[in-house]
Each structure stands twice: as structure tokens, then as C-alpha cells.
Design a binder for these strands. Structure first.
Lengths: 250, 250
DNA sequence: CGGAGGAGCTTGTATAGACAAATTAAGACA
DNA sequence: TGTCTTAATTTGTCTATACAAGCTCCTCCG
């Protein structure tokens, strides 16, 4: 019973019936709705509090703190899926797609020999037509050759590849900060030398073979990474967006 | 009452009166010992289970799982615990500790009124005697006043606070990049205007009350954040360290 | 018009009782 | 001796009640 109540409330938070920042129904209302006792309702609320979904003080109804993420993997790996989940319009301008010898960093990340060829893709990623991220992505040959089969500006590379049989299963993302090189600054429409939030990503197949290495550089005034961290050892990671003024993007 | 029971059991686990892997007293025994009701005892046990200290199944007494430290939560929240886990020597120079009115950002993060006082701590964090991070931390008064009771340069603020009854349960970390202000650059021994990796952290109690807001600024050549992301499993987040040359620190 | 006080809501906490489900240990039986 | 049954113990779950503490809003009085 308490699990059912907690699950229902979780679903409502995800569906938006309970908006983030808004109050939950009072315990008395939940007692009436589920036709149960207050102790059981409180047990359900304790579970949600445990997960960090709600918070509250004495005398006030608990408020929804954040929504659990629907599909963590896709959302985090696919820029397109991420933007769409947040209700924005993703876009991209493919500046270059080329088959060439792997760079030193790429070869190291993908476990290739220095002379091996990869497919490089350079794309400027947009949110609501504003530049947000510069993506330098390198794919191993068998995967990269698939990229010539479809329009990279039409949608997500990730969905395009998985639709053609690629099985991306794990990824590691390393986040740091760098100074914007002049070329990057022009494309991202910021000042050269300004700070960039860099995410270097290695995606692997189910067998553990690395197939993509990417160097994504975000405008730090428009994208941040947020890690929610509870004692229960559940870690959640999301990317957040900000408008040019630095305010949370609705 | 339930807090007293939980605290007593915690102490016994730490002291070894309750051995790791061994069973806890049954709920009936605890009811008699503390002269309370079963509901209260169960509330205390739920708190311990929440912290991962105990685990149990139906029909069996809960068993002590122990190992409160070294877990992801502590490692991610405590600079000291993190460095020690990686086999390095953490250090710090407390540059300032002051009670003053909360800044605008702090008040917003902690849910305080503009005039409310907080305890600010400014610390330079070192790894193996090299500056790595600049920490600006603000605590709500009841927690912050505890900071005057012990030596901040002796060890972890986090363990000092939890030992004095603070119950930090969840935290959110927002990561972005900024240009180093001149003052920060001097302390971190880098060039002014260079990129800094910033982590803004809000830590809350079990009830969801925010009690700490921190602005940590890392040298990006020495610290990065890594997110491991599998399709089936949960997300794991760790921080990584690099030597001045940018190579992984052994 | 404004502040003080209180009523009515909320959650936090504690108590007592009841039944279900799982484990464990003792005892009966072949 | 080995196995099955049964009883006792223990935790999981739910219900009902009571009071304390904090918040909001309304009313009343100065």
C-alpha cells in the first residue's frame, strides 16, 4: 500500500500533475484519496523524502524538489533527447564530416593504433537557435561510415546510429574547464580566452569496445551539470540550461 | 526519542559493542530497554537503514553493515575523505571564518531572509601541499556556530559536524566554468582570467532543510569530474585528480 | 489603518493494538 | 537418524488516537 502511494506520487511528479516547487496534497487529503491511514501515507512520504524528491518543514505541506529523470542514459548521451525533454528546440549545424587518421587523444581513448582511420564530425549544437555547444566527435570506422547514410542535421546521431544497429551501452563523461580558443569562441559567440565547460565522452558497446570519443565544449552561461547526491547512494546527474543572463531557462 | 535511540545504536556500532555482521537487538528488546513503543523504535531503525548502517529481512534481526565512511556520499561531500580515499594527503588553510549577513546567493540557496546571519568559511584546500581548490562555504547559524568549537585546519568540517549531531543527508552539486578573478588566481597560483571549474553545492538535512551553501573553485588542470553512465545501471559520479602536467595522478 | 491574538490548518512525534509474512528452533514421527 | 510439522519469534504492514509544534490567515481591538 505505501509503495503504491509512493509510486503514484512519483508518477504524478513525472507527469507534471505535481509541479516542481509546488506543494503536495496534505497527508489528510492523501488519507482520504487512498482510503488508508496516516501512518501509511507518512511511510510513503518518507520514501520520497529519502529519494530527495520532496522536502518539507513542520506546519507546511511538503514541496516537490525535483523530478526524477525519465531515461538517464539517453538523456545524457543524446543532446537532442536532452533538449527535447526540457521542452526546447534542439538544432545543429554540421561544420565538417571527414574520414582521416585518428588524433593522438582519439587513438588513446578508442584504443586504436596511430595510423588508424576514424570519422570525425564537427557540429555546432543549438538550443532555440542559439549556439550552446561545440561538439568534436570521432567514431570508429564501422560506426562512422554509417554517418554518411543519413542527414546529420536532421536529428540525433545517437538515434540514427542505434536505429542502424549500433548498441551503445555505456559512457563515461569527464568534465573540466578550459580557455576558449579563438576558433571556438567565434562559433560559440563568446570572447576568446573565456571559460568553457568541457565534457569529454567515451561511449562503448555492450562488450566494452569504445566506439566514440567526443570533446564537447559548452557555453558555461547556458549549460551546467548538476549532481544530486543522497545518502542512499543514489546519484543522479542532469545537465541544466541557462539563458544568456545566467537565469534558469524556463 | 527516536533520534536518541538511533544515536545510541550508532555509538554502539562505532564502539564495537555491536559487531559488524552481527545482529541488532530485536525490536521488542529495544522497546523494553528504552521504555518506548515499537513505532518509535522502528523510526530509529529506519534512520539507520537509511544511512546504510544496518540491513535486514523479514523474520530476522537486522544485521550491522557498518562502514559509514568511504561511501560515495561522504566521498563526494567531504574533500578530506575524497583525497584520503585516493591515497593523497589533504590539507587546508582556513583564510577566514566569520559570522555575517548572508549574501544574496546564499540567502536564496538556504531559504533565508536577506538580513539573516550565516557563518562564512573561506578555505584553501590542498592536495599534497599543492593548492587545488578554493572553498567559500556558508552555514546556517545553528550549524555554523559549531564550527567555532573545533580546529578547522585539523580535519574535515563534515566529520566534525556530523560528530556533533548534524545530519547531512542530501546534496546537489552544480558544475560550471568561470574565469578566475584576480584574488582567486593568486591563491590558486594560476593566471588571472584563466578557467576555473566551479561546483556550487547545497547540502540539506534529512528533513530537507538546506543548511550549507558552498562555492568551490577547482584548478581544472588538477581536478575533473567524471560521470560513468551505463544503460542499465545507475549513474556514478567521481572526481578525478591530475598533476600539473595534466596527466592522471597515480 | 495596523498590529496582536487566536482559530484552523499543517506536519512531527509517540503510543497501542492487530494481523501477515518470513525465519528459526523445537518436537513428533517414520 | 533424518525429515516433516508445528510453534514461537521477529520483522513488515496497517490502523487509530493523541498531543506538540509550526504556519497561515482571519478577526478583533487599539
Amino acid at each position: 500500500m505505501h509503495a503504491k502511494i509512493a509510486g503514484t506520487l512519483r508518477d504524478r511528479i513525472v507527469a507534471g500533475t505535481l509541479s516542481v516547487g509546488g506543494p503536495l496534497p496534505s497527508e489528510a487529503q492523501l488519507v482520504e484519496e487512498f482510503n488508508t491511514s496516516r501512518g501509511t501515507v507518512r511511510q510513503a512520504l518518507a520514501a520520497l523524502r529519502n529519494e530527495g524528491l520532496i522536502e518539507g518543514r513542520q506546519g507546511q505541506s511538503p514541496v516537490v524538489r525535483c523530478a526524477p529523470m525519465g531515461q538517464p542514459f539517453e538523456t545524457f548521451l543524446s543532446f537532442t533527447a536532452w533538449a527535447e525533454q526540457l521542452g526546447h528546440r534542439p538544432g545543429q549545424r554540421t561544420l565538417e564530416i571527414a574520414r582521416r587518421g585518428a588524433s593522438e587523444a582519439t587513438a588513446a581513448a578508442l584504443g586504436l593504433d596511430p595510423g588508424d582511420h576514424v570519422v570525425d564530425v564537427l557540429r555546432l549544437r543549438l538550443i532555440d537557435d542559439r549556439p550552446v555547444m561545440l561538439e568534436r566527435s570521432s567514431f570508429v570506422l564501422d560506426l562512422g561510415m554509417l554517418l554518411f547514410q543519413f542527414d546529420l542535421d536532421a536529428g540525433s546521431i545517437y538515434t540514427g546510429l542505434t536505429a542502424r544497429g549500433a548498441d551503445l551501452a555505456t559512457a563515461t563523461h569527464t568534465i573540466d574547464a578550459i580557455s576558449a580558443p579563438a576558433a571556438d569562441a567565434v562559433l560559440l559567440e563568446i570572447e576568446a580566452g573565456g571559460p568553457l565547460l568541457r565534457e569529454r565522452r567515451t561511449a562503448t558497446t555492450r562488450e566494452g569496445r569504445p566506439v566514440e570519443y567526443a570533446d564537447d565544449r559548452y557555453r558555461p552561461d547556458r549549460v551546467t551539470f548538476t549532481i544530486a547526491n543522497a545518502r542512499t547512494q543514489r546519484l543522479a546527474v542532469v545537465r541544466d540550461m541557462f539563458d544568456p543572463g545566467g537565469n534558469p531557462w524556463p
